[in-house]
Design a protein around this nucleic acid. Structure first.
Length: 650
RNA sequence: GCUGACGUAGCUCAACUGGUAGAGCAGCGGUUUUGUAAACCGCAGGUUAAGGGUUCGAGUCCCUUCGUCAGCUCCA
């Protein structure tokens, strides 16, 4: 005999008794009318479900309202259905693909004969408003496979999906008004709960992400619980757009990419080159203090070298084509522009006998390498074909791995944490199924990496099976000033190349041993890192990196000579300074310096010229100014540069 | 590489359905000598990405190539 009542547990531990067959919506109603109205979905034993589904005895239930982070995913998933509902009304023959929630929004893929235009999007968005106004309930049904196929006879993509479902999987379909979709759910109770949404753009997307399959048309949108959230999100997009390094790079005259030179190739203008130079100088100082040795190797090498390293068979797609041999060389000798430096650094290692006492040997080179990235992937400085890697290869004994990794993480902390003030995260990627080297070697290597991570006391995540076939690695991830995640340093162990090149050192036992190799980059590439810095600082670099550090502004022509003397004093202290001696108003000069994001303006009027002082205005500080003797100003700036301060000290 | 959109002065953008390529800023010249985010007047600046085609006539329509952008795929 079925029980007449069920008992469920609420998040606060209290229990509630409901009639058998009661749904989560009933539970919300039983708790209070306010909650019933606000309820969007329910979390039953940890799984998010529709409100309309019946509860069973003994479950733990949490009613999700718009306060719950997971409710947003439900809202967005339902928004995707509303989008598809609208598209089907306007384009009845559109075949439907997938429509999941994603970070900040949702998308839905459609197979249509012609791509959507911006005008289509506007029409679809208007139709979506009708669908939400109609407030259709989302109705869930569980069906068997045959029934599911019958319902989607006209949707080949859905049929394919049904065929992929395992025999034990529950097949559910959701209906909202005129639209039926194969979908696991859950959904908000009705389309009327979706109020604040916006379609963003449409673009092609391969069916199931497979470039050999047909291309569908994907429409992206965003949805939020409140108007404020939606507007804040749109403002965030706008903020990101204003920080775009491609825009700022042009405005601040940092670099260009020119058709005459080629796509993906960065032309560093003097100001961008100064940022690049300061970063190089910094990292070179850091590593030279830590026992690294600088090397320089050629941009092109015989192709044979990359054959031996094993790159060519695997990597050829990303390499530029071979060049013919030089005059006097056999015809079959070909050259390649290098896509990486490791083989050449290995040859330096192998150029003489090495003793165990010499290890670790750390060879570093900030080198330009070239990779023939597919044209569609190029993106400003962030994805390029000419890369300046701050590369190094460390050759060491297995038992030295832990200590070396510890020291590498120290550099990571110095650069990312201390110097740039970034909160970063470390990801440890361990052995994949298909791998090189013995389990014992991997055991030791992985243990060594974990030892180092633990000794540093930093938190890290383990990506099981995420390592390369030739060794485990640690990746550094961090967030920028507006919360976006970036990939930074990478530290990669390698058992493969020492093998291929038969590298050796002589051990204390007077016998040959094989060293381990570490590939590592701290910035990654200067292109990407500078691109990141531009966006992170919105072009307002800290003093030590600023291409122009001080602009001296004489108020009238009479003070130009005094201004030049100030500039001379600054320049003598190693500061990058420019005198704006144009016959424009002070207002104009200030505006110009601000728009060029110069950290300091030093105003020299008659008073300052007579007193040997400057009126200092810091970038972005408005009218707040401080009058300082020139020597004091110089002293403070030098200190700010030396300490690589992130914020102005004046 | 794929799909779509786009490419006009150094920059940002105009030019109705094909009918004389314009403006602001920047630049240059002059006037002004300025006290904390744009002084005033003037001048110059273009093979409309490149090449081909249709047309009496092409920035505008068609084709090819190059490039950019949004994604997909790939990645430091």
């Amino acid at each position: 005999m079925p029980a007449a009542e069920i008992r469920v547990t609420l998040p606060d531990g209290s229990q509630k008794v409901l009639p058998a067959g009661a749904t989560a919506a009933d539970l919300a109603k039983a708790i209070g009318p306010g909650l019933a109205k606000a309820a969007l979905a329910a979390k039953v034993n940890g799984e998010v479900r529709d409100l309309a589904r019946p509860l069973s005895d003994g479950v733990a239930v949490e009613i999700l309202t718009d306060k719950h982070p997971q409710a947003l995913d439900v809202l967005r998933h339902s928004s995707a259905h509303v989008l598809a509902t609208a598209v089907r009304q306007l384009f009845p023959h559109a075949k439907i693909g997938f429509g999941p929630p994603i970070e900040d929004g949702f998308y839905y893929d459609f197979e249509v004969p012609t791509p959507f235009t911006p005008e289509d999007l506007a029409r679809i968005e208007a139709k979506m408003a009708e669908v939400t106004a109609a407030d259709y309930a989302f109705v869930r049904e569980e069906v068997n496979r045959a029934e599911a196929k019958r319902r989607f006879t006209d949707d080949p993509l859905k049929l394919e999906r049904i065929d992929d479902l395992g025999p034990d999987e529950v097949i559910s379909v959701y209906t909202d008004g005129p639209f039926v979709d194969l979908c696991r759910g859950p959904h908000v109770p009705s389309t009327g709960r979706i109020k604040h949404f916006r379609l963003l753009h449409a673009a092609g997307a391969y069916w199931r992400g497979d470039e050999r399959r047909q291309m569908l048309q994907r429409i992206y949108g965003t949805a939020w619980f409140t108007k404020d959230d939606l507007e804040a999100y749109l403002r965030r997009l706008e903020e990101a757009r204003k920080r775009d390094h491609r825009l700022l790079g042009k405005q601040l005259d940092l670099y260009s990419i020119q058709e005459d030179v080629g796509p993906g190739l960065i032309v560093w203008h003097p100001k961008g080159a100064m940022v690049n130079f300061q970063l190089r100088r910094f990292i070179e100082d850091v590593i030279l203090e830590r026992g690294y040795q600088l090397v320089y190797t050629p941009h092109v090498t015989r192709e044979q070298l990359f054959l031996r390293s094993g790159h060519l068979p695997l990597y050829a797609e990303n390499q530029f084509p071979a060049m013919a041999a030089g005059e006097g060389e056999a015809e079959d000798v070909r050259y390649r522009v290098k896509p990486m430096n490791c083989p050449m650094h290995i040859l330096i290692y192998a150029s003489q006998q090495r003793s165990y006492r010499d290890l670790p040997i750390r060879l570093a080179e900030i080198a330009n390498v070239y990779r023939n990235e597919r044209s569609g992937t190029l993106h400003g400085m962030l994805r390029v074909r000419g890369l300046s890697m701050d590369d190094a290869h460390i050759f060491l004994r297995e038992e030295q791995i832990a200590q070396e990794i510890f020291e590498l993480l120290d550099i990571v902390e110095l650069v990312f944490g201390k110097t740039f003030g970034l909160a970063y995260r470390l990801d440890l990627a361990t052995r994949p199924a298909k791998k090189l080297g013995t389990d014992a070697t991997w055991d030791q290597a992985e243990r060594a990496l974990e030892d180092a991570l633990r000794r540093r006391g930093t938190t890290y995540r383990v990506d099981h099976g995420g390592g390369a076939f030739y060794g485990p690695k640690i990746d550094v991830k961090f967030n920028d000033a507006i919360g976006r995640e970036w990939q930074g340093a990478t530290i990669q162990l390698d058992f493969e190349l020492p093998e291929r090149f038969r590298l050796e050192y002589t051990g204390a036992d007077n016998r040959p041993h094989r060293p381990v190799m570490i590939h590592r980059a701290i910035y990654g590439t200067l292109e990407r890192f500078v691109g990141f810095l531009i966006e992170h600082f919105a072009g307002a670099f800290p003093l030590w990196l600023s291409p122009e550090q001080v602009r001296v502004l004489p108020i009238a022509d009479a003070q130009v000579a005094a201004a030049r003397r100030v500039a001379e004093a600054l320049r003598a202290a190693g500061l990058r300074v420019h005198v704006d001696d144009r016959s424009d108003t002070l207002n104009y000069k200030i505006r110009d310096a601000e728009t060029h994001k110069v950290p300091y303006m030093a105003v020299v009027g008659q008073r300052e010229a007579e007193a040997g002082s400057v009126a200092v205005r810091a970038r972005g500080a408005g009218k707040k100014q401080e009058v300082l003797p020139v020597e004091e100003f110089v002293r403070r700036l030098v200190n700010e540069v030396r300490s690589r301060a992130l914020n102005p000290l004046v």
